[in-house]
Design a protein around this nucleic acid. Structure first.
Lengths: 192, 192
DNA sequence: GCTCCTTTGTTGTTTTCCCAACAAATATAG
DNA sequence: CTATATTTGTTGGGAAAACAACAAAGGAGC
């Protein structure tokens, strides 16, 4: 199992609650209006917590978005049990499809291009891809440096998926994945 | 509008939350097992709050049951907009049907007869009936003492509804209400 | 009867959260 | 551009909840 850095043991139920309240309110607001137009006040009012309490948990709404993206993406991985398995071409392809779906889903939440929202989605999702691939490579006893290969592959996967999502008449994600899978496999240098 | 004695203005969001958590956990447990077999520990574990916090809000589980019954019954009244209207034969009959339904519903939550559960349901529901009837009578400018008439009627309604609910081949609540409505009207001494 | 175990209330201390107030930074309108 | 709101980030003091520990009461099994 991919070690969650947040292997927090017994967490104070109060912070668990407020985190959940903030997260829930934020997700609701994301559905209703774009990220930019959401203010910290909006979130705390919706969550029915004090505004100062928000700042005890996150430095600003961008920090909240970061953890929110990571959490949401991890949930998608866990739905497909990707974080609890090992490397295979099939799992790699499932991962790529997951990234494609996630980018498409994220697009509904941001209006402007080049926004802070897009930047943070890219940063967090690439990081998660990298962590998972590194974990897979270490398990498989790769000959190449897992860190380097994982980084390269994460950039390649995200870059390709983003280009695919911006293509106005793009094929479906599964067909696209079949196309690019060999290249990613080459980066990972695993001949399985 | 029937003046809620709990016209609490701005209530601390923390107590609002914990009350809701307790209430929610208690309702869940009531559905799963009888009132007697529920311990304070069960409630606080389900609600994910500290046990000592429970005692900061209620002296024991019986006190919780009291407020829970009152709240649930008031919700039933508000569903039928009974707490925001005035006296009429039709509204009186709706009230009686509500009491019948409530007693039948409560029966599923208690096993033994003569239990503390039954006693508290009777006490709280009679009180709510009394308050509502007194409010109606005061609005109508009754000639008789509203307190006395309301008390008498509340006992009569509850007693009759309880007997009806214990009747193994009881008629439906609406038909039963038609039967006893004249008697209750007589107690209230209103010739409308 | 007697144990063993669970539940019950209660207490004192620590942590988290609420609240109001503030100056600074950002909108938004005219 | 100026004026008026609104939002932001931070602070100090007070209230609520968490936590651990305790004696006492109740129940289950033997």
């Amino acid at each position: 199992m991919l070690e969650n850095i947040s292997t927090e043991q017994r967490i104070d139920p109060r912070v668990k609650r407020t985190r959940a309240l903030i997260e829930h309110a934020f997700n609701e607001l994301l559905e209703e209006k774009g990220f930019q137009s959401i203010s910290v006040q909006d979130i705390t009012e919706r969550a029915e917590i004090n505004r100062s309490t928000f700042y005890a948990h996150f430095v600003d709404k961008y920090a909240l978005l970061e953890t929110n993206i990571t959490q949401t993406f991890r949930q998608e991985l866990e739905k497909r049990t990707l974080s609890a398995c090992h490397y295979s071409v099939e799992n790699l392809q499932i991962l790529i499809v997951t990234v494609c779906d996630f980018i498409m889903q994220a697009k509904t939440h941001c209006k402007a291009t080049g926004s802070q929202f897009e930047i943070l989605v890219e940063k967090q999702v690439k990081q998660e891809i990298r962590d998972l691939l590194e974990y897979w490579l270490e398990q498989s006893g790769s000959t190449t440096d897992p860190k380097l290969a994982a980084t390269a592959a994460s950039w390649a996967i995200y870059g390709l998926a983003l280009q695919w999502s911006n293509d106005k008449q793009h094929t479906n994600a599964e067909f696209f994945t079949e196309q690019i899978s060999p290249q990613i496999q080459a980066i990972l240098q695993l001949n399985q």
